[in-house]
Write a protein that binds this DNA or RNA. Structure first.
Lengths: 207, 207
DNA sequence: TCAAATATTAAACATTGTTCAATATATAAA
DNA sequence: TTTATATATTGAACAATGTTTAATATTTGA
């Protein structure tokens, strides 16, 4: 009779509205300055109502978190056609930094914020992140197999490279770059990425 | 007549007691689960009293933050006698990771936590961190000057190397390493550090 | 011993996430 | 259409948070 389907659809729409509104407020006022009441106010519902759609605040945050991973993975997949794994790695680095710095709130939630990762290990919900990690790992693996990287420890290299880009992003997002003027950050990051790729990777003739 | 000196000393002792107690509770129950009331309880004072010694909670956190930087800098200075800048860089990397992973709460406060860095830019209180940064930068500079690193952009290289170690530390501390089993983390980090130093640095004969 | 300065307290405030009985609304059967 | 049942929504209440402040103890200097 279709009415149950509609109910379910409306429920999902409401969930989406809450998530969307929460994200708007996150960007506006910063993640920790957004209360359930503020979200409820904005959609003209009572605070208690939110709890018929989400178990708690953490579940809202987790939903946004997952959305972020979808976005990142979609970006990574634009590199599917890049044949040379070194070129792919270089582009992925730039793309990753771009994503982090242009979506600071998403990135924060995904990779920095406290109290988000804990619940994830409970469920097997890391999958959505695992996809992105594997995409990087496969590229590193290809680099090693084709002799571009002289280190057989795929996991160590992958983690190191991830740490490298994440580290810069995290330091910038969490405001730990007081030692350099704001306007130099971008070129410094570019310089660092360049340094990484010219030094970590063997040039063609050496393999 | 000395009584003012004593007053001042007692005030400082009280400040220290509060900081010490706060740190204890931070380690015990995690940074965000420590209330002013809990600290007050533990030292058998009223919550309000804390505010005669610290402007607000942020000032307590900031004091611990500064303590952390003292500890880190002291560690770095143990490398003063290492002549070879490459060796010094390698050791500094290991030492930095060790500090981060053995003092997760300090490290979190110093380099990850939100709401700590903001107040620092207000004052010129970044100095204590700047010292540590310069210590790294000077070492990188020496590496470049002696031809161990083929990149003239000192700041980019320094930031990149810092990002590299910070990134790994931050991912571990904030629980973003679900893709690898707990017991492999240490050896992976060691592998990454090794990868970094064997690839970023020219070997002796090439300079 | 006593007035002035200082330290400490307990109570109050506003804000937070969350719960829950009461109420309104929508649905399915008669 | 009316009625009973299920669902959705509300608003008040709770406990915990950081912080302020008027009242109270305590310490100080004469």
């Amino acid at each position: 009779m279709g009415t149950e389907d509609r109910k379910e659809r409306e429920k999902q729409e409401m969930r989406q509205l809450i998530i969307k509104t929460a994200m708007q407020l996150f960007i506006e006022k910063g993640m920790e300055n957004v209360s359930i009441r503020a979200i409820a106010d904005k959609i003209e519902y009572s605070p208690g109502s939110i709890y018929s759609y989400f178990k708690d605040k953490g579940e809202i945050i987790h939903a946004i978190h997952t959305e972020g991973f979808e976005k990142l993975y979609a970006l990574q997949r634009t590199l599917d056609d890049v044949e040379n794994p070194v070129e792919k790695l270089a582009q992925m680095g730039r793309l990753y930094m771009k994503f982090a710095l242009e979506n600071k709130d998403y990135y924060d939630l995904m990779f920095i914020a406290k109290g988000v990762a804990e619940k994830i290990t409970e469920k097997q919900e890391w999958e959505v992140g695992q996809r992105s990690y594997n995409y990087l790992r496969d590229t590193v693996q290809a680099c090693i197999e084709r002799g571009y990287i002289n280190d057989k420890n795929v996991d160590a290299v992958t983690f190191g490279i991830w740490g490298f880009v994440h580290g810069m992003a995290a330091l910038i997002i969490r405001g730990r770059c007081a030692m350099m003027p704001e306007e130099f950050i971008e070129q410094t990051v570019n310089g660092s990425l360049h340094f990484m790729y010219t030094h970590l990777i063997n040039n063609e003739q050496s393999r």
